[in-house]
C-alpha cells in the first residue's frame, strides 16, 4: 500500500487573472474525482487551501497575467512543477481580461479611480500590499514555458479529464471534435 501511495503524482492548481470558472469546471469531472485522487495528491490548490506550492509533477494554471502577483505565482509554479498546464481561455490567450489591452493602463486607472462619477477625492490605490497591474494582460506562455494547453471558456470537465488521463497514462494529450473548444 505504501508503495502505491508514494507513486501518486503531486498536482497543484491556481487561478491567476481568471474567474475560477475553470476550477468549477474541473469539479465537473464529478465522481471521476474519486478515480483521480487514487492517482494524484493535491498540493497548493483552492481545493486544499494550501498557500505555497511545493515540488509537484503537474501544475495547472487558470487565468492570464494581469498583475505582478500573477507573474510571481506563475514563476513559482514553473519552478516547482515538472509539467505546466495552461487551463482555459485566459491562461491560453489572455481571455476576457485581455480585452483591456487596447486601452492604456493609465487611462483605465484614471477612469476607474479618478474620474468615474461618485468618486469624490478618488485616488489610485498605492499600498505596497497591492500588486501592481501590468501594462497589458498576457497569456502565460508569453512568460514561462508551458507544456500543455487546455483551451475553452471554460474547458469542459470532460476535456480536462481527457487531458489529465492522457497525461497520467503517458500519452501526448489531445482533444478531438466536441472536446476542443475555445469558447
Amino acid at each position: 500500500m505504501e508503495v502505491v501511495e508514494k507513486k501518486k503524482l503531486k498536482v497543484a492548481t491556481t487561478s491567476l487573472a481568471g474567474c475560477f470558472g475553470c476550477h468549477m469546471s474541473f469539479l465537473d469531472i464529478d465522481e471521476r474525482l474519486f478515480d483521480l485522487v487514487e492517482l494524484v495528491e493535491f498540493d497548493r490548490s483552492p481545493l486544499t487551501d494550501i498557500k505555497e506550492v511545493g515540488k509537484c509533477d503537474i501544475g495547472i494554471i487558470e487565468g492570464g497575467l494581469c498583475n505582478a502577483e500573477n507573474v510571481h505565482v506563475l514563476l513559482e509554479f514553473r519552478r516547482q512543477c515538472k509539467v505546466l498546464i495552461a487551463m482555459g481561455a485566459c491562461a491560453v490567450n489572455g481571455g476576457l481580461p485581455a480585452q483591456r489591452n487596447h486601452l492604456p493602463l493609465a487611462e483605465i486607472l484614471s477612469e476607474v479611480y479618478l474620474s468615474s462619477p461618485g468618486l469624490g477625492n478618488g485616488m489610485i490605490p498605492n499600498d505596497p500590499e497591492l500588486p501592481l497591474p501590468l501594462n497589458q494582460v498576457h497569456p502565460i506562455h508569453e512568460v514561462v514555458k508551458v507544456d500543455v494547453f487546455i483551451p475553452g471558456c471554460p474547458p469542459s470537465g470532460d476535456a480536462i479529464w481527457k487531458v489529465l488521463t492522457d497525461l497520467l497514462s503517458g500519452q501526448g494529450p489531445s482533444l478531438g471534435h466536441g472536446l476542443l473548444h475555445y469558447d
Binding site: A106, L109, I124, P128, L134, V143, K145
Partner: peptide, 26 residues
C-alpha cells in the same frame, strides 16, 4: 532558459507612474 516575450519590469511602468510607487514590490 525560457525567457518572457516582454520586459517584465517594464510592464509595470505605467502602474508605477500612476501610483507613484517605487518600492521593491513595484
Amino acid at each position: 532558459d525560457f525567457t518572457p516575450a516582454f520586459d517584465l519590469d517594464g510592464a509595470l511602468s505605467q502602474a508605477r507612474q500612476m501610483t507613484g510607487r517605487d518600492d521593491a514590490l513595484a
